[in-house]
Nucleic acid binder design. Structure first.
Lengths: 181, 181
DNA sequence: ATTTAATATGTAAATAATTACATGTTTATT
DNA sequence: AATAAACATGTAATTATTTACATATTAAAT
C-alpha cells in the first residue's frame, strides 16, 4: 500500500525538506505512529521524483555540501488528498511483542510474570513523563488549540500518544494486582 | 529478532498444533497483537524443526490427508522461556495509518477532517461491540479469573484489546468536538 | 449426489523494512 | 588546531511480510 509514499507527501505538503530532514521528522512526534530509516527514504524520494509527485532543488550547504531540497508538486498534492480522503481499514493486527508474551503468561511463574509486567509498567511510565513534557506546550495556552492552527496535527499526535500510554499503564496496574506474585 | 519464532513456540507450548491450526490461532484473539500468513508460518515451522525447537508427527486425517502435528521440544521450551524472561524494549513507533493522516489534518477542510474522524470512530465502535461479546465469557463468572487459570493469557489479550479500543474511542470523540466542522 | 466451505500444505514473487556498508562535509565544542 | 557531533546521501544485503500461485482432501450443506 506504500504508506511511506504518503507519509513523505504529507510531510512535504507542510514544507520543503531534504531526505535528512524527513529522517529527522520520523524521530520526532510523528515517529510515534509512523517512521522509516534513511535507507528506505532516499530510494522512495527517488521513485516519487520519477513519478512526478515531488521535485527537488540542489542547495549548497557551506561551500560544497550538496543538499537536495524536495517539494511536493501539484500532482503530488492531488495524490495526497486522494489518500487522505479514502477510508483505510483498521488492520486487525497491531503488533505488540509484550502482549504476545502476556498471552503466553501461563508458561511463567507468578514471580516471573510480575517482573515482566512491572518492567513494562516502569518503561511506559517513563514514556508518559517524556510525553507530558512535550505536551506542556499545548496545555499552558490561554486559548485551547483549534483546528485552524497549523499545529493541530502535532497536537493530535501528541495527545493520542499520551492517552495511549496512560491507557496501557492503567491496564498494566490492574493486571499486576491480579497476578499477585 | 524473529518474533514469529517465539509466537509459534509459545502457541506450541500450550499444545500440539498443525501449521493450519497456527494460522487459525492468528485469526483468533492473539491476532489482535500478533499474526502471520500461512506462507510465513510453513517455512518458519520447517526452520524450527531443523533447529530442533519443534518436532512433528504425521497424522492421517480421513483416509489420506497428511497433517503434520507439531510439538515443542525441551530445547524449544528453554528457548521460549529465555525470550519470555528477557526484556524487549518498547518500539518507539507503533504504526497507525489513521494517526499519520491525523498529523496531516491541516491539508484537509474541517468537513473532510470530520468525515475522516467520524468514519474511524464508527469502525472502532463496531470493534468494541465485537470485543465486548467475546469478553462476556470472563465477566459472567462468580469468581474473577486468576493467574493460575489456563485462560488467563486469553483474558489478558481480550481485556487489553477492549481497553485499547475504548481509549481510542474516547480520544476520537473529544477530538471530533474540537474539529467542529 | 453435488456443491461449497473448511481443512491442509506448500512455493514463488513482490513489497516493506532493517541492518550494515560506505563516504564526505559542516558546525560546535574543547 | 583537533575532535566530536550533527548534517548529508547513498547502496547492498538481509530479514520480514504480503500477495499470488498451486494443489488436494474432507466435512457440511443442499
Amino acid at each position: 500500500m506504500r504508506v511511506l509514499k504518503y507519509a513523505i507527501l504529507g510531510l512535504l505538503d507542510k514544507g520543503r525538506l531534504s531526505g535528512y530532514d524527513i529522517t529527522s521528522k520520523f524521530k520526532e512526534e510523528i515517529g510515534h505512529f509512523w517512521s522509516a530509516k534513511h535507507s528506505q527514504i532516499y530510494p522512495e524520494l527517488k521513485k516519487l521524483t520519477e513519478e512526478g509527485f515531488v521535485e527537488y532543488q540542489i542547495v549548497i550547504q557551506g561551500t560544497k555540501l550538496e543538499k537536495k531540497v524536495y517539494s511536493i508538486t501539484e500532482l503530488g498534492k492531488t495524490e495526497l488528498h486522494e489518500w487522505m480522503n479514502q477510508y483505510s481499514p483498521i488492520p486487525e493486527t497491531q503488533k505488540d511483542e509484550f502482549m504476545l508474551k502476556a498471552y503466553f503468561v501461563s508458561s511463567m511463574s507468578p514471580e516471573e510474570a510480575k517482573q515482566l509486567f512491572e518492567d513494562q509498567l516502569e518503561k511506559r511510565k517513563q514514556t508518559v513523563v517524556f510525553l507530558e513534557e512535550r505536551f506542556q506546550e499545548f496545555e499552558g495556552k490561554e486559548e485551547p488549540i483549534s483546528f485552524s492552527s497549523p499545529d493541530f496535527g502535532h497536537y493530535l499526535v501528541l495527545s493520542r500518544a499520551l492517552e495511549r500510554e496512560k491507557s496501557y499503564i492503567s491496564w498494566l496496574e490492574r493486571m499486576i494486582k491480579r497476578i499477585g506474585g
